[in-house]
Amino acid sequence: MSIGNANSPEEERPSTDDRPSIGHVLKQARIRAGLTVDEVSGTTRVRIPIVHAIEQDDFSRCGGDVYARGHVRTLARAVGLDPEELVERFDADHGGRPAPTSAAPMFEAERIRPERRNPNWTAAMVAAIVAVIGFVGFTLLGGTDADRAQPVAEGSASPQPAAPKPSAKPVAPAAEKPDPSDSAIAAAPRDLVTVKLTADGGESWISAKDHNGRLLFDGTLQEGDSKTFTDKESIDLVLGNAGAVQLFVNGQQIKDEFQPGQVERLTYTKDDPQPEEDAAQAG
């Protein structure tokens, strides 16, 4: 029986080679990039305790190997590393890549309750103004017709026609703001960020927010379904079973090779995809 302090997770795991561990590589890359754990957490949306645990090669707080793989991939990208190399090392250390599982049960814990929408008072006021203007116009036109229909007594002078009253100019109702379209977005507006998702390889759980953090969608896309989201600044996405999703940003297809069962947290702006991303995709 050995006596002493309990071994850390890094000491308990048998070393297969002399390379630094995954957590050590991520931590050193973060330090070289001049980033704090708080900054990495804010960029990737991986909680601070989980970032600390991964940098210490403790993946037990990730909630399973599928989540751990997704966190390793996300953190690697945030600190400027090749995510595929670290994910392959993680798979080798944890029994290989896990088989794809149903998206909805996996991400039930990440679902966010939809916000209760406030009444659209602007649309109600516009409708009320249009109704008042229409009523006034109808009253004016109806009064003119009634004056014309009055009989003239025999022998009396024919009344001079009254000057026509100006009719109220119809006011067209304000155009309602269109909902995000599910059609193709080849002509995406340049002053908005437009993101289109299509589940073409199975079902996938999706969460989307605008730049204010307001929830735009939270649910499962069945195979063949599409969703389009727009915002004036940015769209934040969480994709479950990302390998089943075809993604277009501002009219251009994002060709990242997402894997089945993979969790992706993404943010896109009006300037995406960046030129260097296009060059990497072309290569």
Rank of each mutant, 00 (worst) to 15 (best):
Thr267Asp: 00
Tyr268Arg: 02
Asp225Trp: 00
Gln252Glu: 10
Asp179His: 05
Ser158Val: 05
Asp182Cys: 06
Leu216Asp: 01
Leu247Gln: 04
Asp179Tyr: 07
Thr220Glu: 14
Lys177Cys: 07
Ala186Gly: 15
Leu192Gly: 11
Asp225Val: 02
Asp256Gln: 05
Thr220Arg: 09
Asn250Cys: 02
Ala172Cys: 11
Pro273Lys: 02
Gly219Ala: 04
Asp271Gln: 08
Asp278Pro: 01
Asn250Gly: 05
Asp182Ser: 11
Phe138His: 04
Lys232Val: 12
Glu203Met: 13
Pro161Phe: 05
Ser234Ile: 14
Leu192Asp: 12
Lys209Asp: 13
Pro173Val: 06
Gln160Thr: 11
Ala175Gln: 06
Ser167Tyr: 06
Lys177His: 08
Pro180Asn: 11
Asp271Cys: 00
Gly155Ser: 05
Gly224Pro: 01
Ala279Phe: 05
Glu154Ile: 07
Asp256Pro: 00
Ala149Cys: 03
Ala146Phe: 08
Ser183Trp: 09
Val193Arg: 13
Pro151Arg: 01
Pro273His: 02
Ala188Pro: 14
Leu239Pro: 00
Val263Met: 08
Ala280Val: 15
Val245Ala: 00
Ile185Leu: 07
Pro273Trp: 03
Val193Asp: 08
Lys177Leu: 09
Leu221His: 02
Asp272Ser: 06
Thr267Tyr: 00
Pro273Ile: 03
Leu221Arg: 12
Ala174His: 10
Glu203Thr: 14
Gly261Asn: 01
Ser181Pro: 11
Gln259Ile: 14
Ala162Glu: 05
Gly251Tyr: 09
Pro189Gln: 09
Val171Met: 09
Lys209Met: 15
Ser156Pro: 00
Glu154Gln: 14
Arg265Lys: 10
Ala186Ser: 12
Glu203Gln: 14
Pro161Gly: 09
Gly142Ile: 04
Ser156His: 13
Ala163Ser: 07
Glu203Ile: 14
Gln262Phe: 08
Glu264Gly: 02
Val152Ser: 00
Ser156Asp: 14
Asp256Ile: 02
Asp147Val: 14
Leu266Trp: 09
Ala280Trp: 07
Gln253Pro: 05
Ile254Ser: 07
Phe229His: 03
Val245Phe: 01
Arg190Pro: 04
Pro151Ile: 02
Pro189Asp: 12
Lys209Thr: 15
Ala244Lys: 04
Gln253Asp: 01
Ala187Asp: 15
Asp231Lys: 06
Val263Asp: 01
Ser183Val: 12
Ala146Ser: 08
Leu237Lys: 04
Ser207Thr: 15
Leu237Trp: 10
Gln252Asp: 12
Asp225Ser: 03
Lys169Pro: 05
Pro170Gln: 07
Arg265Phe: 08
Pro173Trp: 12
Glu276Ser: 09
Glu277Thr: 15
Lys209Asn: 15
Gln262Thr: 06
Gly251Val: 06
Lys270Ser: 13
Ile235Pro: 01
Lys196Met: 15
Leu215Ser: 07
Glu176Lys: 15
Asn241Tyr: 08
Asp278Thr: 14
Phe248Tyr: 10
Ser167Val: 11
Thr144Ser: 07
Thr228Pro: 09
Lys227Phe: 12
Asp256Arg: 03
Thr269Met: 04
Ala149Ile: 13
Ala242Phe: 02
Lys232Phe: 11
Ser158Ile: 11
Lys270Gln: 09
Gln252Cys: 01
Ser226Cys: 03
Gly240Val: 03
Arg190Gly: 11
Gln150Arg: 05
Gln150Glu: 08
